[in-house]
Amino acid sequence: MHPAPSVIVFSVLSGAGFGLLFFLGLGFVHPSGLVAFLWWGLGYGLAVIGLLASTFHLGNPKRAWRAFTQWQTSWLSREAWASVAALVLLAPMALSDWLDLGLPRPFGWLGAALALVTVFTTSMIYAQIKAVPRWHHWLTPVMFLSFALAGGAVLAGQSFAAVLLSALAAVLLAIWQVGDGQFARRAQTLGTATGLDRIGEVTVFEQAHTAGNYLLREMIFVVGRKHAQKLRAIALALAAVIPAALLVISGEVWTFALAAICHLIGALTARWLFFAQAEHVVGLFYGKR
């Protein structure tokens, strides 16, 4: 699948933002005054920038409001609702922290839960797609939630962030391991896709068109898979291992800042791979994967 920069930036930043809002909403930190403004502002900023970035890859962004209408069947529509609901419901808690209004903490709990629900809905947009076997399994939501929780905990300056980062490392290794075998497990080939396997062994005799098209650009993105193993090592190190090590060594504010930057760069790399490595079954009709 084509790794569109807007979608990668959106899902990484909004994931980390909602992760931070989750910990702020639950009251793991009790900032007040300017610190509260900046901290909540960071959470809101990441979440909102991410959501705005996601509209950049739309063909008709001016109609984006329509994405709220089909929540009954569409995960993308549910994501739209969950994100707005989380941001609205957490607002009183954010204001209370900033202006010292002393609102009871449980006010933030529902919003915190919705922040995680938002991340889950984002992950289901990908996990629901049967035509992309690498995405279509339960580890996809687990991976998105692990990123949000680990990233959120680092941004919230929590001492247990190192534990969540280690868990993230395990999830990444698992999803790569499982993902690599997913296409083969689906057992779709050019023969089964065309149904011509009932006659014999099928190969492409002549392509349907000599020029490129939307399908080849969007769904049959094969460049960049070559360096996948190296990029995985980089993603694992930057997103999880190095930040976890940093936080074990020191608990200073600057270590958290460094760990957060490192983690986000690693997360962007991992998300790029999530798209670039995903094979759509339509590639089979073209004799590709």
Partner: peptide, 13 residues
């Protein structure tokens, strides 16, 4: 809105 999600969901291109 041209989000392209339906094209992803269609297995047949």
């Amino acid at each position: 809105i041209g989000c392209g999600l339906c094209a992803w969901a269609c297995p047949y291109g």
